[in-house]
């Protein structure tokens, strides 16, 4: 974890690859992209490129830590967003609507939990199924996929707080992301539940033989994943004051990418919250830096892809070498 010794650091060139990539990218953009180093821009990176993806990626880290994956994080985001918007439109107070949104997202996790822990379907297939069913449900709910707008004039100020507000000068989305990251790190590395989740990912049978009710832990994990992802639904809705069906899926591939880039940060190649956060930071800095450097928009995607690819390649090649040694 974050307090790993220096020897572990030098042992794994994989870890070095991620940190080095981050440093190199940062230095490159600081030198080439005008305005990259300005305070306003760095804050913008954190708010626009980092905060939301970090929350989704941390949620994904839980699923991957438990040896699974959750392809339906976008569905949880959408359901949370839909429930939030609907409740606000129905005139409910904002805090209640926000809670309802969280519950709406957690519902997706409950569905996954039944499939994965109850029936025993592999997480990939279960959550892929959820993704498809969720897409249809949203289209049914919205008359074929029409966005649900909130009238900008009628939106209470409290509604905009999650997306636009700030506490002590810090933007709320960033604060929420920081809380989620810290909380997830504490849970995964400092609690019994977290240890069981990690152990499940390493060897589920051992957990079962230890007399732990594996299905309960797994069920709780997937509900937690969706509940965390649901937070993004709330922030997103509060920012743009509209619910667009199936829009949450935009986070999916980047969240998976960041989580697995993060695994190169661990000497054993396991998912970990600090690594995930570094992965998200890398993706965010690259996206922002490429934008500022005035590179053709379409080349930006190529650049990002190549960078992810090289970090993964170095990380995995190193892990393979370590396994052979």
């Amino acid at each position: 974890m974050a307090t790993a010794s220096l020897s572990a650091f030098t042992r794994g060139i994989g870890r070095y690859a991620l940190v080095a990539a981050l440093a190199a990218v940062f230095a490159t953009f600081a030198a080439l992209a005008p305005g990259f180093l300005s305070g306003a821009n760095l804050v913008s990176v954190l708010v626009n490129n980092f905060a939301l993806l970090a929350i989704v990626a941390v949620a994904m880290t839980f699923a991957v830590s438990a040896g699974g994956i959750d392809l339906s994080v976008g569905t949880a985001i959408d359901f949370a967003s839909f429930a939030f918007v609907s409740l606000v439109l129905a005139g409910q107070p904002i805090p209640l609507a926000a809670l309802g949104g969280l519950a709406g997202g957690a519902l997706v996790g409950l569905f996954n939990a039944v499939l994965i822990a109850g029936i025993g379907i592999s997480p990939f297939l279960a959550t892929l199924g959820t993704l498809f069913v969720g897409r249809s449900v949203q289209q049914l709910l919205t008359n074929g996929g029409n966005p649900v707008y909130l009238p900008p004039a009628g939106v209470p100020e409290a509604f905009r707080f999650l997306g636009h507000g700030s506490v002590a000068g810090l933007p709320v989305p960033l604060l929420v992301a920081a809380l989620v990251i810290a909380g997830a790190w504490l849970v995964l590395s400092r609690t019994r539940f977290g240890r069981v989740v990690l152990a499940t990912g390493i060897q589920a049978s051992v957990v079962r033989y230890s007399g732990i009710r594996l299905s309960r832990v797994t069920a709780a994990t997937y509900v937690l994943v969706s509940a965390i992802a649901a937070i993004v639904g709330l922030i997103l809705t509060s920012t743009v004051t509209v619910y667009i069906p199936s829009s949450g899926n935009a986070f999916l591939l980047n969240a998976i990418g960041a989580t697995f880039i993060g695994t190169t940060f661990d000497p054993h190649g396991r998912p970990n919250v600090p690594g995930t956060v570094l992965g998200v930071l890398l993706l965010g800095i690259v996206a922002n830096g490429l934008l500022l450097s005035g590179l053709n928009f379409y080349w930006q995607q190529v650049g990002t892809g190549l960078l992810i690819f090289s970090v993964l390649a170095i990380g995995f090649a190193n892990r393979k070498a370590a396994a052979r040694a």
Partner: peptide, 18 residues
């Protein structure tokens, strides 16, 4: 608990080799 399945051994589990 959320899922009523404590007594079912989850014999096929996620990433375990099926």
């Amino acid at each position: 608990m959320l899922v009523d399945a404590p007594y079912i051994p989850p014999s096929v589990f996620g990433l375990e080799e099926k």
